[in-house]
């Protein structure tokens, strides 16, 4: 006997993501799903963003396969932080986020960063309840990345190019990264920053501040 199923395989995840989103919306929290390959500088970007946050109240969910190093780095800034260990999984999913929502003081957070597992592929597939996906690429990773890993560039609203202080020491063609990223996703907002020197960070924070206010 043939039975019609007509269901999206990721429907269960999308449903939980929507529930998470309702919790965030009720509390007026703007949520950023922060994604990149390992070592591009996600936690460094968060440290810089926390340093320059002013009165913007920032909370963080850290996702890693193992360890709590990242959460400890965030804690030093006095920001509420929860560490998730995926125990091998290559991405965060909506259910993992749902399980830690109770551990965060939602009423005391304006912007919540969900730092995904370092991986340029899988996190782009799974909604976690975010308002916006932001991806980070360090220029040292090479200018071939947009065309090699197109999905994340297509799914993100913002691309932050990190480590631009290394430009003179690499052969990476920043113009090509931007051109290819924009042809994959013409609406992409691009920032060039260096978490090491602080270059470009205030533009990013200023933009984030404005964007989070217009949404919540």
């Amino acid at each position: 006997m043939k039975v019609k199923v007509a269901t999206k395989i990721l429907e269960a995840n999308d449903r939980i993501a929507l529930e998470n989103r309702k919790v965030f919306d009720r509390a007026g929290v703007f949520v950023v799903n922060l994604m990149s390959g390992p070592g591009a500088g996600k936690t460094s970007l968060l440290e810089k963003t926390l340093s320059g946050r002013g009165d913007l109240r920032i909370g963080v969910i850290e996702g890693d396969i193992a360890g709590s190093d990242d959460a400890e780095r965030i804690e030093k800034f006095g920001a509420p932080v929860v560490q998730i260990n995926t125990g091998g999984a290559c991405h965060l999913d909506a259910n993992m986020i749902s399980e830690v929502l109770g551990d965060l003081p939602m009423d005391a957070i304006d912007v919540l960063f969900i730092e995904n597992v370092g991986n340029l592929v899988c996190p782009a597939e799974f909604k976690v309840g975010e308002d916006m996906k932001v991806m980070l690429l360090s220029i040292a990773e090479g200018h071939d990345k947009p065309l090699k890993y197109p999905l994340m560039f297509q799914e993100s609203s913002v691309l932050i190019l990190n480590k631009i202080d290394l430009a003179p020491y690499t052969d990476a063609d920043i113009g090509k990264i931007k051109r290819d990223a924009l042809s994959l996703n013409p609406g992409l907002q691009i920032f060039e920053v260096s978490c090491r020197t602080g270059e470009g960070i205030s533009e990013w924070i200023g933009w984030l501040r404005k964007r989070s206010r217009t949404s919540s």
Binding site: M1, K2, K4, V5, A6, T7, K8
Partner: peptide, 19 residues
């Protein structure tokens, strides 16, 4: 470059044969 994808991202279960 002003195009949008109308198909190609599917991940759907259509139906199944059961007994």
């Amino acid at each position: 470059s002003s195009f949008r994808m109308t198909a190609g991202r599917e991940l759907d279960i259509i139906d199944m044969e059961v007994s």
